[in-house]
Simulated assay, not measured.
Amino acid sequence: MHSYTVEPLYVKSEQEVIAADFYRPATVKKPAVIIMAHGLAALRQFRLIQYAKRFAQAGYAVVLFDYRYWGGSTGRPRELVSLKAQLEDWRTMIAHVAERKSIDNRRIVLWGTSLSGGYVLDLASELKNVQAVIAQIPFVDGAESAKLYPIQQLSRALKVSSQDYMGAKVGMSPRKLPVVARNELCFIPTQDSYQGYMSIVHPDFYWSGEIPARVFFHLIRYRPIQDVRKISIPVLFIAARQDSLISIESSRETATNIAPFVQYHEWDMKHFEIYHGQWLEKAISTQLDFLHEHIGVGE
């Protein structure tokens, strides 16, 4: 087990500053680096630190960051989810890490979960300086996920989303929807999602639980599945068989489209269970095995 340090890292992304934690193993000269960020409307402190610590203890450097508008990163309006901006933040962090002398820029790994799992698959189909990808419970097909949305609420959600989308174009204040809620219109209304999402929220960090409704419009059109055939690097893909947000059929189809470069695992769990207990331990163990096989710790 390696000792490690954690340093704050601030990186310019267009007009904003991205805040990150840089985990550096003390005894590895030029470690491989894992770049990590969270899914929809989540902060880096929402159960991702536990992954980062274990990777650092295993001898890998980790850069764990917040998107612009979120957490320690700058940008207004606060808590805006822009898929385009978040993908750009990923590209910025990858470019920054590639230039750091203290890490091995020939061994860059992208790690994503849920929405960011979709991002890292998207980026792997596009970028040439990434060596491997870990995607757990990734958001792969917004059109398919929309079919899991309660049909009686879908038209209302689309209406509010389009109103906010049009309002944003003329400078109106955002119309917001809760990320999760028990008995009202929200982004993730499936039965197990309120308890699941709230189980990862860290109460010590500001989080309103609401985001602009226009994001719904963008999410259902976001389909990483369409480009994954271009991926030619090792991918670890962990899917949840009882996932109420991401259809298992779309996960399977995505995995077959990545073949032969994919190592696919399908576990009998719900979407948020991978952040806790036995599933968390299994995920970290599986991910470390994948890293050791394809990347290696080095000296």
Rank of each mutant, 00 (worst) to 15 (best):
L64V: 08
F290H: 07
V262T: 08
K29Q: 15
V170S: 11
K270L: 12
G59P: 06
V160P: 02
A283R: 09
G118A: 11
L110W: 07
I246P: 04
L148Q: 08
R182P: 03
T286L: 08
A20C: 07
K169S: 12
F139H: 10
E253A: 14
G196W: 01
G112D: 10
Q86T: 06
T74D: 07
A32E: 11
L40A: 04
I188V: 15
Y194I: 06
S251I: 06
H265T: 09
S102H: 05
V28A: 10
V201F: 04
H96Y: 15
W279F: 14
I231W: 12
H38Q: 13
V201C: 05
V81H: 00
A85D: 15
S13I: 10
Y275C: 04
S102V: 12
Y264G: 05
S13M: 09
E273H: 07
A20I: 05
Q131M: 10
G117A: 09
N129S: 08
Q278R: 14
S285L: 12
K230G: 07
N183E: 15
A37R: 05
L48Q: 06
E210V: 10
I49K: 10
P203W: 05
V17R: 13
G39S: 04
D289A: 14
S208W: 00
R68W: 03
D227L: 10
V97D: 01
S162L: 14
Q263V: 12
M269N: 01
L127F: 09
A239Y: 09
P77G: 12
Q263L: 09
R44N: 02
P224K: 02
T92D: 01
L185E: 10
Q136A: 13
P224V: 06
R214T: 02
K29T: 14
S155I: 04
E273V: 05
K84Y: 09
E7T: 13
K159P: 01
A132H: 10
K29L: 14
S3D: 15
Y60N: 04
L87T: 01
L110F: 10
I220T: 11
S155C: 00
Q45S: 13
I295K: 00
R107S: 05
I18M: 04
D268K: 13
A255C: 15
A259F: 14
I18R: 00
K84V: 12
I284N: 01
I231C: 10
E144S: 13
F205I: 03
I103Y: 06
S13L: 08
D268F: 03
Q86W: 09
Q15F: 07
G298L: 00
